[in-house]
Simulated scan of single mutants.
Amino acid sequence: MIRHLVLFKLNEGVTRDDPRVVAGVQAFEELGKQIPELRFWECAWNVSDRPIAYDFAINSAVDDAEALQRYLDHPAHQAGVAQWREFATWVIADYPF
């Protein structure tokens, strides 16, 4: 299994109630039901207000590297990523577990 973690930081001046952000969150919330390669899926806003904290997180899992690539290439994932590119940056970690 591979854990896929993504931490998102909203761009300066962008807030959680921005309509683009609301739509982006909804797109990511639905991915768990749309992409069969996902064995585990959760996403949520960070509750920490520490200065180094990121704003939003995805925690997911797939069977192997091939499944991860299929997830990354899936049209629903690509559409969500395109939305988030408009208002956030992110960091990613993929590791076996």
Results as ranks from 00 to 15, higher is better:
D49A: 09
A53F: 00
T15N: 07
H74R: 08
L7Y: 02
V25K: 12
V47D: 10
D64R: 11
G80A: 12
V91G: 04
L7I: 13
Q83D: 06
I52T: 13
L72K: 12
V14D: 07
I92F: 00
V81M: 09
W84I: 12
G32H: 03
C43D: 08
E37A: 14
Y54L: 08
W90L: 04
Y71N: 06
V81Q: 12
A67R: 05
W84G: 05
Y54C: 08
S60V: 06
L68D: 13
V81T: 14
V22A: 04
E37Y: 00
H4N: 07
D18Y: 02
F28G: 04
G24Q: 09
Q26C: 03
V22I: 08
G32L: 05
H4P: 03
A88L: 06
C43P: 05
A93D: 08
E42A: 13
H77D: 06
R3F: 01
I92P: 04
P75L: 07
A27W: 01
I35E: 02
D17R: 15
L31A: 10
E29Q: 15
Y95V: 15
L5P: 06
W41L: 05
R16V: 14
P75Y: 01
A76K: 08
P36H: 09
A53R: 11
N46C: 10
G80K: 05
N46Q: 13
G24Y: 02
Q78D: 08
V14P: 07
V25H: 02
G32R: 09
Q34C: 10
A82F: 00
E30Y: 00
A57H: 03
W41I: 07
W84P: 05
F40H: 13
V6K: 04
A23H: 09
F87Y: 08
I92A: 13
G24H: 04
P19S: 11
W41F: 03
T15P: 03
D94I: 12
V91S: 04
L10H: 04
Q34R: 14
V21F: 00
P51H: 02
R3D: 06
G32T: 09
N11W: 01
E30G: 14
A23Y: 02
L31R: 11
Y54V: 09
G80D: 03
Y54K: 12
N11V: 10
V14E: 05
N11Y: 01
D73A: 13
L7R: 10
W45R: 11
V25G: 05
F97K: 09
V91P: 02
Q34E: 11
V81C: 02
Q69N: 15
Y54M: 10
T15C: 03
R39G: 05
E42D: 14
K33C: 07
I52A: 08
V22Y: 00
D73W: 00
G13D: 08
T89W: 00
P36S: 15
E86T: 14
Y71C: 03
A82G: 10
N46K: 07
F87A: 14
M1L: 13
A82P: 07
L38I: 11
